[in-house]
Amino acid sequence: MHIKQRFLVSLSALLLAGCSPTYNWRDYTSADGAFKVLFPAKPATHTRAIDLGGIQVDMTMTAAEVEGSTFAVGTAVAPDAALAQATLPAMRQALLRNIGAGDAGGKNESGTAPAGATLDVDAVGKGNGGPVRLVGRFLAKGTRVYQVVVLGKPGAMPPEQTEQFLSSFKPQ
């Protein structure tokens, strides 16, 4: 009977561990109320000064990692709405450069995003010693700019999880 009890306890523990979701989706509202999004795990936030196409801004990055894929929202405030919109191609290009990927579009001939436009990216490059895929959106609302991205190994980013994250993003 003692062995049978141990087996049942071990089996119960194994079943409970199997029920633990890999993606533990949770509503998140940024501390300043600038956006809402669903993160697949508890996110962490970090702020640092960056250059966005010649404009110095403080960018706050909020991100969570699940099974080697990073789900992140970056936000910054530009001096005015026109400059916010103008920084979108620079944000997109900087991330493509970070993974060594070429630009496959996303801006018009003048090098700026049309007013109200959202720039998308889906590119494969290199990072952390292997191939990485970057899927994301870049948008501006008023003076605030946003980058909403998922970065991970190309085969390890479930499309439904990536789309859930990207489509859940709501600027405020």
Rank of each mutant, 00 (worst) to 15 (best):
K126N: 13
Y146W: 10
R137M: 12
S167T: 15
G136M: 08
P158S: 10
S167V: 11
Y146G: 03
A156I: 06
S167M: 12
Q147K: 11
L134W: 00
Q161F: 07
G127M: 13
L134N: 00
F165C: 11
Q147V: 05
F165R: 05
V150S: 07
K126V: 11
K153T: 10
F165D: 07
T143R: 15
R144K: 14
L151A: 04
G136Y: 06
S167K: 14
V150M: 08
P159F: 02
G155F: 02
V135M: 08
G130F: 03
V135D: 04
L134H: 01
K153G: 13
E163F: 05
G152Q: 01
A156E: 14
L139Y: 03
T143M: 09
A140T: 06
Q161Y: 05
T162E: 13
L166W: 11
G130Q: 09
P131A: 15
G129E: 04
L139N: 01
P159N: 09
R137N: 12
G129F: 01
G152I: 00
N128W: 07
P131K: 14
P158L: 10
P158E: 11
L166N: 12
N128L: 15
V149C: 08
Q147Y: 10
V149D: 00
K126L: 13
M157D: 01
L151H: 02
F165S: 06
K141A: 10
